[in-house]
Each structure stands twice: as structure tokens, then as C-alpha cells.
């Protein structure tokens, strides 16, 4: 099962696809992100690890503007997330502009969040048809192609409820890919799965990484991080406190916190 799909609609020019510069985010008095600096190269797979509450999900959600950042700048391609830059002014984006920018970013959630009232095929086709206004024949062909690649061709007309968790998550990945995104975000995609179903989802993600997709993955699967990630980033208390090549961070952590965390999860 190999995924060689999704030539992006607009090939990324810059080598750096995501650049976070001092990103801050608070919920009320609770500062959850305290200045995140992170560069992700185009084609790179970055795993975000860290204890619960360290702000991994929040950062990921900031990248596609499900949360609004309070400080710093966050670049995806040549766009500043949430702002239009004119001269020395940051204009807040309109809702339509935010929606348009999100079409380049696919997101996979812990709880799949498939649309339960639509069949698998309808789940995949909905956004390309209604948001990108692409032709139905093309979208349909692409959707069926993707379902084949995640090994779920025969489930095209099934409703999500009738699929196992692992199958639902593979559909969710296919749904995101059907938008032909430049960047894929995964927020603990296997945490809600029974252990025997984790492998099938990680396999799909591994195949996707091999195609050169840029991926930011929040995960507790250290095996996946070691095998697939180009870089591992360890977050603690709203900051990045260690990052580097996967074997180094996982095999030979420098920071006390990283050591403690890794010895707990490994």
C-alpha cells in the first residue's frame, strides 16, 4: 500500500513551509503557549511530543486558525495565519480569508470527527465540491483513488458508524487529503484507538510521509516518531525545550524533562 498522491495545487516556493516566531496563546489568565519558535521544512515530518497540557494541541490548532494567536507570528507558506500584512500593519483576516487559507492545511483529529450523516464517499467529496467548487467527476475519481490507497475501497458507501475506529481514522485522513493540502496536521490520531488498530493508521501515515507530504504530528507513539519523523520536538509548559533529529532526542535526550517524559512513555 503506497500513497503517491496529492501533487499540491500550488507547489510551495519557499523551502520553509511553516515558521512560528514567538507564538503566544492564552485562555483567559492561563498562558498556554509562551513563545513557540519552530521551523518546518517542506517535505519534513515533525513529531510534537510532551506531557498532557503542554500545549501541543493548542499549537496545532493555531496553525490552521482553529485558535487565534495572541502574540508572535505564524507563517504557513507565504501567508501569516490570521493576518494580512499591508505595509507596517497587520490586518486581521476576514472569515472568508481564513477559510480559504485553511483549504491548504489538512487536519486529522483524535476523535476522527467524520460527518455521521454522510457516507464515506460523501465525507471525502463534500469540501472539494462545496469549498473548492471542483468538478464532481474529478473529485469522485480522486476520492475513490484515495479510498483505495487507504485500503477502504469497499467501504465507499458505508456510513462512518459502521466502521471500526481504525477504518474511521483512515477515512478521516483520506478526507483531509482529498483537499490536496500542502500541509497535514495530526493531533494524536491513534490515541482513541484500540491497540490492535493503531498499526493500520500509522501505516497509512508512514506511506503518506514517504510521498513527501509535510506533516506535523502530535503523538505518543515513540516507535512511529523514531521511524518516520525527521525531527522530534519536545514541548513542556508552553515552550519547546528540546528538539533535534528523532534518534538523538529519543535515544539520547539532553534535558531532564525530556528524559523524565521519555522514560515514562517508552
Amino acid at each position: 500500500m503506497t500513497i503517491e498522491l496529492t501533487e499540491s495545487r500550488s507547489a510551495p516556493e519557499a523551502l520553509t513551509l511553516v515558521r512560528a516566531e514567538g507564538v503566544r496563546k492564552s485562555f483567559g489568565d492561563n498562558e498556554v503557549l509562551k513563545g513557540i519558535d519552530l521551523h518546518v521544512q517542506s517535505g519534513e515530518v515533525v513529531c510534537l511530543i510532551g506531557a498532557s497540557g503542554s500545549g501541543k494541541s493548542t499549537f496545532l490548532r493555531c496553525v490552521n486558525h482553529l485558535e487565534k494567536i495572541d502574540g508572535g507570528l505564524l507563517w504557513v507558506g507565504d501567508r501569516a495565519v490570521g493576518y494580512r500584512i499591508k505595509g507596517d500593519k497587520l490586518h486581521e483576516q476576514s472569515h472568508n480569508e481564513i477559510c480559504a487559507d485553511r483549504t491548504d492545511i489538512g487536519m486529522v483529529f483524535q476523535h476522527f470527527n467524520l460527518f455521521p450523516h454522510m457516507t464515506v464517499l460523501e465525507n471525502l467529496m463534500e469540501a472539494p465540491l462545496r469549498v473548492l467548487k471542483q468538478r464532481k467527476v474529478d473529485v469522485r475519481r480522486r476520492a475513490l483513488d484515495l479510498l483505495e490507497k487507504v485500503g477502504l475501497s469497499e467501504k465507499a458507501d458505508a456510513y462512518p458508524r459502521h466502521l471500526s475506529g481504525g477504518q474511521q481514522q483512515r477515512v478521516a485522513i483520506a478526507r483531509a487529503l482529498c483537499m490536496q493540502p500542502k500541509l497535514m496536521l495530526f493531533d494524536e490520531p491513534t490515541s482513541a484507538l484500540d491497540p490492535e488498530l493503531v498499526g493500520e493508521v500509522l501505516r497509512v501515515m508512514k506511506d503518506l510521509a514517504r510521498t513527501g507530504m509535510t506533516m506535523i504530528v502530535v503523538t505518543h507513539e515513540m516507535g512511529f516518531a523514531r521511524d518516520v519523523a525527521d525531527r522530534v520536538v519536545f514541548m513542556h509548559g508552553g515552550r519547546i525545550i528540546e528538539e533535534g533529529a528523532a534518534p538523538e532526542v529519543i535515544g539520547n535526550p539532553q534535558h531532564e524533562r525530556t528524559k523524565a517524559f521519555l522514560s515514562a512513555v517508552l
Binding site: 480559504a100 460527518f115 462545496r130 483537499m179
Partner: peptide, 16 residues
């Protein structure tokens, strides 16, 4: 709430 977030992440507008 995840339904609205998933739709938003796919670029769907509020009305959609």
C-alpha cells in the same frame, strides 16, 4: 463541537 471544527478545518464557511 468536533463536527464544526472538522468542517472549519476543511475550509467550510460558517453557513456551509
Amino acid at each position: 463541537q468536533g463536527q464544526g471544527e472538522a468542517a472549519g478545518a476543511l475550509g467550510m464557511s460558517r453557513i456551509q
